[in-house]
Design a protein around this nucleic acid. Structure first.
Lengths: 366, 366
DNA sequence: AGGACCGATGAATCTGGAC
DNA sequence: GGTCCAGATTCATCGGTCC
């Protein structure tokens, strides 16, 4: 194992690049310990003879006379085993991202579903500068597909909705992401000036994945580490990473790369707080604290009146109950957010009751 | 069989809507007789409860009986059978298009490969106006996936490279297609003014498919005909169609629609594409792409400093939010164009962040 | 006539914490 | 584990009405 920055957290070898077959190494790590897995597995079986069975025996069918069905079988066996090992490692609310092209992504997607993973979204990385199709026999292959899945249907995976919305300038993030391919200064070269890895992923892609589906301190595993883009972005963003890579040349490039990466400071890593994370304020507290008086009138958007009662419930005609229940009753709606629905009068002006909730929350920060 | 426009070509019931189960009907047609199949099968959506918009209106979901399958096993059996029947019908150089979402497309793609179909491209239909994710729990589901495959690896499928290039303003057509969903006047309604079919596809999508991968006079089969978009566009473009549809209500709507369709003149095919507006660039993309670093300082015209956060928001004193919001806060102004307001330092010089936006836009034109 | 405003709606695996 | 209920959540487009 390469342990230049060796450290341990909860028995996990975090911030290291582990040497070996990804399935074996994953099976050696403790069950239910990983928050997120990002996997960019190989699929170019014809050109790369580096695919091995779980028992490490060499696969002949791949570089032998090309037999589509035999090779799909081999690829499916490989996919099944590493996805199984990955699922064992995930915490119950953990999640996985896989990336691929039409050569392999359908097989990965089907196997994810077969194993009980629950697909949350498929995401299209739309390349702003793809390689053209020179022979004019196909469409320009201008995208790759990612699949984001939780460990099971009833899991509660991390999703930083607000942070992604901010990244997209206030509009909810879509399932198609326009990002350039990795080239220029970001593209790692070996000593001969050749690209160090054929499929190095752009850091921007991992930035979006990690901002959106992990929190600072989370442990992110990449079983096909390559040049370590996942590790580099994880380190910048204050996440822990574990990389697995069997090729020494890639481990070396990745380790050197990681040594140059610096973590962003804490303030920069803070992202927009979701409203759901803010402390709950019972409406009754406004009455207890005298911000609203029992008997005082609240006004609906359509001018209907409800009276505040001493226990923090409302009464309006036949309807009585919480601010939400009475609002829903007046609107004949299945639900209603009473905080944004009701207003009251102060000094001749009409004010939302949510202003009072914000006052209480502001005090709680002191 | 509905044979209002009954005709025969090479023993094929062309330009008709056939009644019945698509597998049985396909098996009754002659082997090796079809040039192109376009298939929009049930997606096997698995919806639980109702979904309401934030304004409390209810989403009219796809809950039709024909979209219900008991298990992946049942869906896979169905997929295997209709793809097998489809492959028997194709001419040796014929091709197939299938469309789906992440619920079913991985299973279709894997089965296509298993049966010996050869995938030519996967194509992303990027919806310009998708339905948002109302609960903020996922990414906006903003695309669907099509797979274009030939009958076998050594086939020579029709591909009208030049025609697609023309459709794309002289640039090689990519594998991601931006098209609006089908609504407005094109969306077929039933007598009650409700949508006639829950998943009617836009004609523009079929236009591109048929222009790109068929020739005039080709026979196009759609085994899940629905409201007959495939037939309508085929007729307009001078292709023959065969539709199979087991729901009488859909057959009726489709037949009526087809009776109104007229074949285009050749000139009518030429369309002028309006100049696109400048693409919107989210500020967060500058951060994801490393053009600005989390923690880096931006400078206002009056020398005030704001720090960039990892989600593309700024923080300056008490103010936090988008580049526009923080700029407006510092100026006590109702609004502010952050792009022209903020600057940063590079190599000792002060540069407007708008320069970075222009860089990104320049790349997007490639 | 034209612009502002409002309501409707689209293939969706769409909540979470307390008790 | 089930039940209850607070309360958080939307973008682009079309078509109709109002000013």
């Amino acid at each position: 194992m390469t342990k230049s920055n060796a450290s341990e957290a909860n028995g996990l070898p975090v911030n290291q690049i582990l040497d070996g077959d990804c399935i074996e190494v994953m099976n050696s790590l403790p069950e239910g310990s990983i928050d997120l897995i990002f996997a960019d597995p190989p699929y170019n079986l014809q050109l790369k003879g580096d695919l091995h069975r779980p028992d490490n025996s060499k696969v002949d069918a791949v570089d032998d006379h090309w037999d589509q069905f035999a090779s799909f079988k081999v690829y499916d066996d490989f996919t099944r085993e590493w996805l199984k090992a990955a699922r064992r490692l995930l915490k119950p609310d953990g999640a996985i991202w896989v990336i691929g092209s039409y050569h392999n992504v359908f097989r990965m997607g089907a196997e994810l579903q077969n194993q009980g993973y629950w697909i949350l979204n498929d995401v299209i990385w739309r390349k702003s500068n793809p390689m053209p199709n020179f022979r004019g026999k196909r469409l320009t292959n201008a995208h790759e597909t990612l699949i984001w899945a939780s460990k099971s249907e009833d899991a509660k995976p991390t999703f930083n909705y607000e942070a992604l919305k901010e990244l997209n300038e206030g509009i909810q993030m879509r399932s198609d992401w326009v990002l350039p391919i990795c080239n220029g200064g970001e593209r790692l070269k070996n000593g001969d000036g050749e690209k160090a890895h054929p499929t190095q992923k752009p850091e921007a892609l991992l930035h979006r994945v990690l901002i959106g589906t992990t929190n600072p301190g989370d442990v992110v595993l990449d079983p096909f580490f390559g040049t370590g883009t996942t590790g580099a972005v994880a380190k910048m963003l204050g996440r822990e990473f574990i990389g697995i890579e069997r090729e020494e040349a890639y481990r070396k490039v990745a380790a050197e790369r990681l040594s140059r990466v610096r973590k962003f400071d804490r303030e920069a890593l803070a992202t927009t707080t979701p409203k759901r994370a803010q402390p709950r304020v019972p409406f009754g507290q406004l009455v207890e604290r005298g911000m609203l008086r029992p008997g005082e009138s609240l006004i609906s958007p359509r001018g209907q009146i409800a009276k505040v009662r001493a226990d923090g419930t409302l009464i309006s005609g036949e309807a009585r109950g919480s601010i939400h229940q009475v609002g829903a009753a007046l609107e004949s709606a299945p639900s209603c957010n009473g905080w944004t629905y009701w207003q009251f009068k102060r000094d001749g002006k009409t004010v939302s009751i949510d202003v009072l909730r914000q006052q209480i929350r502001a005090e709680m920060h002191d």
